[in-house]
């Protein structure tokens, strides 16, 4: 087994353990930190797959943005120290069963499926190519979705402000 394979299995184990701890730990703040680790693990996985741009975006947006946002919201809702209420026994049982059976089914599907061989070309996710993909003036590029996502982000930002804004008292 090569070092690369060992690295992959370590990264995979790290991601999964951190993920499991995210959904099971009692304290919300710790869950956020485990999520952070899990996301860093995924970034590492992207590095391992030599998709550096995706890894960078993962770190910047997820680790630097979303997790920080989540931690802020934990502070804002004063949930950082308290133990979370434990899940309902019955629902945990049913959810667990459903999830495990669905996972097992999916894995058997994965293993039994014949994956066609890809082309022999080398995968080249360079930033230049990504730039062409997103904003080049060609029919294949994703210009329109790109613009739409930018509008979506703007709308989301305004929506957040409106929702979270303190309701003004009805003034005269």
């Amino acid at each position: 087994m090569s070092a690369s394979a060992i690295a992959f299995y370590c990264i995979a184990a790290f991601i999964l353990i951190a993920g499991i701890l995210t959904v099971t730990t009692k304290k919300l703040f710790r869950a956020a930190i485990w999520l952070l680790f899990s996301l860093i693990g995924i970034a590492a996985l992207f590095f391992w797959m030599e998709v550096e741009f995706a890894a960078a975006v993962q770190v910047i947006v997820y680790v630097g943005g979303i997790v920080v946002l989540i931690i802020f919201s934990i502070f804002l809702t004063n949930q950082e120290g308290v133990n979370m209420p434990s899940a309902l026994k019955k629902r945990s049982l049913f959810s667990g069963l459903a999830v495990v059976s669905a996972a097992a089914y999916t894995c058997t599907l994965l293993c039994s499926h014949y994956w066609m061989k890809g082309s022999e070309e080398v995968f080249d996710p360079s930033v230049k190519k990504i730039g062409y993909l997103l904003v080049a003036n060609t029919p294949e590029s994703f210009v329109l979705p790109f613009e739409l996502v930018s509008v979506l982000l703007l709308a989301a930002m305004i929506g957040c402000i409106v929702i979270a804004m303190k309701a003004q008292p009805e003034s005269k």
């Binding site: 959904v23 949930q79 979370m84 899940a87």
Partner: peptide, 8 residues
Amino acid sequence: LTRRNMIA
């Protein structure tokens, strides 16, 4: 499915 806290 099991977490009761919405942030979780």
